[in-house]
């Protein structure tokens, strides 16, 4: 029993790493473009489908396929900014309208996937070994994902804090008009952010591909998970998202092992609802007046 729990906790932590990436992307986009990207999980899904297409249908080996997918998912982010977000910003849509528009995108992406790739599960068959340390069994794919995620987070942190562009992005998030007065072009920053967010979905897709099979509704539970994390950690707080990811990763993993996968999700959803009710700014977020 203890071993089972231990395994669940460890795997939860490993999962938490990639969830932290997901939360980071959402927080970045929310902080800079000020939009709740409801269809983020679906973007990851599309990334996974692209990788599958490259590997299974075009015979490209896994790693080049992943690398090839990154600019494509980045371009998707840019396209979203251009076609959906810019019009929303121009029309000065209220947050609810933005939410609904992005929810509409969920329907578009899921059905796009269904039309192009069909409703069945599609997987990249890459056999990776199971490593064990005593009573703990770890999949190599999960380990790679975990360390890869940490590495990515570190790079993103360095980018945001040590480069001029990163500084410009952080400034735009804090006061967009003031950023303008510094010579920063907010439009360019939005595109950059959405491109970065897009590339991030490609990276996450790369880590997920050896672990999960993809289907048109795959994005759904991950988007929900990502939102739960972002709200728990506090919208806009990178550190909060990081911590939240591990909490949710562990809680879902343990609950799923003890009861069922659905219960795991239900527990996460209940946490989400409670946070919204009781402490909407989450653990580390900024207090938002409603």
């Amino acid at each position: 029993m203890v071993e089972l729990l231990l395994n669940a906790v460890i795997n939860g932590i490993l999962l938490g790493g990639v969830l932290a990436l997901l939360a980071f992307g959402l927080n970045l986009i929310f902080g800079v473009v000020k939009i709740i990207h409801l269809a983020y999980g679906q973007c990851v899904m599309l990334g996974m489908y692209l990788i599958y297409t490259f590997v299974d249908l075009l015979g490209i080996p896994l790693i080049p396929a992943c690398l090839l997918t990154l600019p494509l998912t980045g371009a998707l982010g840019v396209a979203l900014q251009w076609l959906v977000i810019n019009p929303l910003l121009r029309a000065k849509a209220n947050p609810l309208t933005q939410l609904l528009a992005l929810a509409g995108l969920i329907i578009v992406f899921e059905n796009l996937a269904q039309v192009i790739w069909g409703a069945d599960l599609r997987g990249v068959k890459v056999p990776l070994p199971l490593i064990n340390f005593g009573p703990i069994f770890l999949r190599a794919s999960n380990l790679i994902a975990f360390f890869g995620a940490l590495l990515t987070l570190l790079s993103l942190y360095l980018f945001l804090h040590k480069t001029y562009l990163g500084l410009a992005i952080r400034s735009t998030a804090q006061n967009v008009d003031s950023a303008r007065l510094m010579g920063i072009n907010p439009g360019l920053i939005y595109y950059t952010t959405m491109a970065a967010g897009g590339i991030l979905t490609g990276i996450i897709a790369a880590f997920f591909s050896p672990i999960y099979a993809v289907h048109p509704h795959f994005g759904g539970s991950f988007t929900m998970m990502a939102f739960i994390i972002v709200v728990l950690g506090g919208m806009g707080s990178m550190l909060g998202g990081f911590i939240g990811a591990f909490i949710i990763g562990i809680v879902t993993s343990v609950t799923a092992v003890l009861t069922s996968t659905e219960m795991g999700e239900i527990v996460a959803l209940v946490i989400f609802i409670s946070v919204i009710l009781v402490r909407p700014q989450g653990l580390l977020g900024i207090k938002i007046s409603r």
């Binding site: 959906v84 929303l88 849509a93 528009a101 509409g104 039309v115």
Partner: peptide, 19 residues
């Protein structure tokens, strides 16, 4: 699936332009 795509896209456009 196609109809859903069109309807989702139409929805996005509609929400933006015809509240």
């Amino acid at each position: 699936g196609f109809s859903q795509i069109i309807y989702g896209a139409a929805l996005v456009l509609l929400i933006i332009f015809l509240p």
